[in-house]
Amino acid sequence: MNAHDIIIRPIITEKNTALMEQGKYTFEVAQAANKPMIKAAVEQLFDVTVLAVNTMNVKGKTKVRRTRQGFTSGRKRSWKKAVVTLSAGENIDIFADL
């Protein structure tokens, strides 16, 4: 798997922009990727030093929809989130580099 396949996209939300101030960047990553792979991929893509990687699996929410035939239920896709902590003073331009 190459780095681009591991790091799928940055997650830009209110919460995550607040975390960026602490040098923590959040990405959606491939579900098959593990922490060492993510670390290597981030270091390679953004040319930074990664101190820590925290990952979690985000379960897709079940969505219930009313149709003529009654209720149909489905599930949004599940994905893997990784919060990457960089060494102090380093940063990533999340808009430029992906």
Partner: peptide, 15 residues
């Protein structure tokens, strides 16, 4: 998306 109205920081809007 991802931000409550009025909460997006400047660089986000710029981008």
């Amino acid at each position: 998306p991802g931000f409550r109205p009025g909460k997006a920081p400047r660089f986000i809007i710029e981008n």
